[in-house]
């Protein structure tokens, strides 16, 4: 269970959102749900953190928003990854994997 995403390492929520959007364009609720499911219901993203983060990602040009029809035939705002967003995601994912394996090594040492 994830109360406040800011308790995570700074910028981790951004990384999660970008990774989910790399699969397919999605609306805000879908992103939150997908993170929840993929993390085997460990992580739950609160709206109060999700929408400002989406706003920030959009302002930085990593995410693009467009209105489209959702699965229940309502107009919803769909977010998709931009090309610079994808590049950023690749960079940050490498960075994160190096970091987490390094932390793992330190934690497992006897």
């Amino acid at each position: 269970m994830m109360g406040k995403p800011t308790e995570l390492v700074q910028g981790t929520l951004d990384l999660l959102i970008l990774r989910i959007l790399a699969l397919e364009p999605m609306h805000g609720w879908g992103i939150a749900q997908r993170i929840h499911l993929v993390s085997r219901e460990v992580l739950q993203v609160r709206q109060g953190a999700l929408y400002p983060a989406l706003q920030r990602l959009e302002a930085q040009g990593w995410v693009r928003a467009a209105w489209g029809d959702s699965e229940n035939n309502r107009r919803a705002k769909f977010y998709s990854l931009t090309r610079p967003g994808r590049a950023y995601l690749e960079r940050e994912r490498d960075h994160w994997e190096r970091l987490s394996s390094a932390i793992g090594l330190v934690l497992r040492c006897d």
Partner: peptide, 18 residues
């Protein structure tokens, strides 16, 4: 309850935008 303060979210969103 899940949602939290609506106005607060709106304000935070605005603070994030350029």
């Amino acid at each position: 309850i899940d949602f939290g303060g609506f106005e607060q979210i709106a304000q935070e969103c605005h603070d994030m935008s350029t």
